[in-house]
Computed example of a mutant assay.
Amino acid sequence: MSWRVAGVDEAGCGPLAGPVVVAAVILDPHRPIDGLDDSKKLSPARREALYPQIIASAYAWRIEFVRVEEIDALNILQARLTGMRRALCALDPAATRARIDGNRLPADLPCRAEAVVGGDAQDPAIMAASILAKVARDRAMLELHAQFPQYGFDRHKGYPSPSHLAALREHGPCPHHRRSFAPIAQLALF
């Protein structure tokens, strides 16, 4: 079908800890979802409310987690692109085309694709993908907070906030910190 266009976006490229989460979504044109927007413009409660609507209404969707070990081994850009490729390849039914937020495309995609700078503010399928990725990542960071409460992952979600940096200086990194990121590597605590 010519309308099977997947929107693809990720959450979590900038944090010092946790996974990069990528989502791919093919919206069903017969089941529109009201209130889609760039996940960064929505409140956490609004994102949580939209998440099950997207899953229930989408023609197809997939969420992929790129773990810290992969991020450190590949680098953040390649980890992001790897997650995008995996999410698109796992869509069932497959996309006929993809619109990917950003200015870079992964190699070896299963369909034609275009990079869309600012796509999470323009394209409903990319908006839906940004919401799925952000909610899934935030939930993963809350799980990490339960294991490692001393870092405050429930508040900053792994981003380099002053409180996170202070916790790193006091406690050193946990297994979910990205060793390849400068603030962690510079601590030389592991």
Score class of each variant (00 low, 15 high):
126 I>E: 04
78 Q>I: 09
69 E>F: 01
96 T>P: 14
83 G>A: 06
113 A>I: 03
130 S>M: 10
54 I>C: 05
59 Y>E: 10
139 R>P: 02
60 A>H: 01
76 I>E: 03
87 A>E: 11
70 E>D: 13
56 A>Q: 12
96 T>K: 12
106 P>V: 14
56 A>F: 01
133 A>I: 04
111 C>N: 08
65 F>K: 14
94 A>H: 14
74 L>H: 07
139 R>K: 06
53 Q>W: 00
120 D>N: 12
127 M>W: 00
83 G>R: 14
97 R>G: 02
104 R>W: 09
108 D>L: 13
138 D>G: 12
63 I>D: 06
97 R>C: 11
68 V>W: 03
57 S>R: 15
44 P>V: 15
71 I>L: 07
113 A>C: 03
83 G>S: 10
139 R>L: 09
136 A>D: 03
63 I>L: 15
112 R>V: 10
135 V>R: 02
112 R>Q: 07
102 G>C: 05
98 A>L: 11
60 A>S: 06
47 R>C: 05
65 F>L: 14
117 V>H: 01
89 C>V: 11
100 I>P: 00
52 P>S: 08
121 A>Q: 07
120 D>A: 14
72 D>K: 13
55 I>R: 15
138 D>H: 03
53 Q>G: 09
65 F>D: 13
68 V>T: 11
122 Q>V: 09
118 G>I: 08
136 A>V: 03
73 A>Y: 05
104 R>H: 07
105 L>C: 08
107 A>C: 04
138 D>F: 02
128 A>H: 00
43 S>N: 05
68 V>C: 06
48 E>T: 11
128 A>M: 10
63 I>C: 12
85 R>Y: 05
126 I>N: 02
90 A>Y: 00
134 K>N: 07
127 M>I: 10
116 V>S: 04
50 L>A: 04
61 W>H: 15
81 L>E: 13
125 A>D: 02
114 E>M: 05
138 D>T: 13
60 A>Q: 02
45 A>N: 14
131 I>F: 00
94 A>C: 15
82 T>N: 13
108 D>C: 09
90 A>S: 14
116 V>F: 00
91 L>S: 05
42 L>Q: 09
117 V>K: 04
93 P>H: 00
137 R>V: 07
68 V>K: 08
135 V>L: 06
67 R>V: 10
53 Q>P: 01
100 I>S: 03
44 P>S: 09
95 A>Y: 00
70 E>G: 12
61 W>S: 12
76 I>S: 03
80 R>S: 12
58 A>S: 15
101 D>R: 06
58 A>H: 01
118 G>R: 08
95 A>D: 10
82 T>D: 11
49 A>Q: 09
74 L>E: 10
44 P>L: 15
93 P>N: 01
48 E>A: 08
45 A>C: 05
134 K>G: 01
99 R>L: 14
82 T>V: 13
76 I>H: 03
139 R>T: 07
137 R>L: 11
54 I>A: 04
91 L>V: 07
71 I>H: 03
46 R>D: 06
82 T>M: 09
72 D>T: 14
56 A>H: 09
91 L>A: 05
63 I>T: 15
44 P>W: 03
90 A>T: 11
90 A>C: 09
115 A>L: 08
72 D>A: 11
90 A>D: 06
45 A>Y: 04
76 I>C: 08
121 A>C: 14
56 A>R: 09
108 D>F: 06
136 A>L: 04
73 A>V: 04
